Simulated assay, not measured.
Amino acid sequence: MKDIIALLKKGSGASLTASIVNFFIAAIKGSAFILTGNVAMFAEMMHSIGDALNQFFVYVGSGLSKKAPTKRFPFGFGRLVNLVLLFAVIIVGILAYETVREGLKHILEPLPVETDTTMLLINIGVLAMAAILEAFVLFKAGKELLKQADQPFDGLKPLTTSFIHMDRAKPATKLVFLEDTVATGGALLAILAILIARFTGFSQAEGIASIMIGIAMFYIVYKIFMENAAGALGEHDPRMEQRVSEIVLRHDEIRDIRKLFVMKEGDLLHVEIVAELDPDLSVEEVNAIRDDIEEMILKQRHVVDVNTEFEVDDGHRAWPQTQNELDKKPKK
């Protein structure tokens, strides 16, 4: 039990925060349903419960994926987070389908516009509170995303520049960031639709807003599914491969890189290198170069192991880098 708790402490903080906040939002919407008897608010409550359970499941999966390798699973459990997220997007897909279906229903069979001012204020108040809470989670997720991307996260950057660096975030953080982007925007869009329906009589506005939110959720399903399907199969990391190549080629004794592969295992990275050396080096010099390279690479974020092999320079350049760039290597 202590081992499980220790692993959960390593889980995605953004997922846990989002889960707690969504349970709280569900409670608020449930209270509004009891007060108003609004069936739409009941549906919103169930939607928030679904989000909360989904994000808690992602939190648990992201923590368990940190479990150390075992005899049965010698490569570790890193890809577990990819499998968990594939399951999570199925839930998001179901919610997206229901959201679009309800939107179409409201367009084809529009409900009477709410004229009771008290009920209107309760509905708008609940949605406004939900928007504020979701924006808080979005800010936290954006901050965590920027930390993982090694970018500054001061001021409003978690709500602005985080979108630019989203592809460099951990899978669980990315899912929470996208979900809460849609949730925050969706709550504001729902408020706008209610006001349009109330003051113009165009009751189909709420249905249109629902469809727009559902389409945005389907985008999340597509993006997260494609990325985590690749991760579950075993995907390389080209950005880290470039960084590792710079570390390797800074040694003047290394003539070329014959093979370099950085494989993602969930949040973790495994590095494989085959480099070509000056044939005149001694064994001691080769070992010193290997130790220096592996020490530098293991300092990179998310890298957990490095396997380095050396071959004698064959005189043919294999690594796709220009000779001009190689000539610019800093001298020792």
Rank of each mutant, 00 (worst) to 15 (best):
G207S: 08
L145V: 09
A169I: 07
E179W: 02
I215G: 02
R168G: 06
V176K: 02
A141V: 03
A169K: 04
T117R: 10
A149F: 07
L159I: 09
L156K: 13
V113W: 01
A183L: 04
L146Y: 02
L138N: 02
E179S: 12
E114P: 02
A169G: 14
D154H: 15
T173R: 02
P112F: 07
F177T: 03
I215S: 01
A141N: 00
P152E: 12
I191N: 02
F218Q: 00
I211A: 01
K157V: 04
D180Y: 12
V182A: 03
I215C: 05
T161P: 06
I211C: 02
P158K: 08
N123S: 13
F163C: 07
H165G: 07
M119H: 07
V126Y: 03
N123V: 09
A131R: 01
S162I: 06
S162W: 03
F199G: 02
F218Y: 14
K174H: 07
I164F: 12
L121H: 10
L108Y: 10
I194G: 01
M166V: 15
L175H: 00
A190N: 07
I208V: 15
K157L: 14
P158F: 03
Q204P: 15
E206L: 12
R168E: 14
I196V: 15
N123K: 13
L192K: 01
K147A: 08
T160M: 14
S162F: 05
I194R: 04
T117S: 14
A130W: 03
A216P: 05
A130K: 00
P152T: 10
G155R: 12
M129A: 15
G125T: 10
Q148Y: 12
P152A: 12
V113L: 01
L189M: 04
I124N: 03
T181Q: 03
H165K: 13
K147L: 08
L145A: 10
A190W: 04
A190R: 04
L159D: 07
I194D: 05
F177H: 03
T181V: 04
F136G: 07
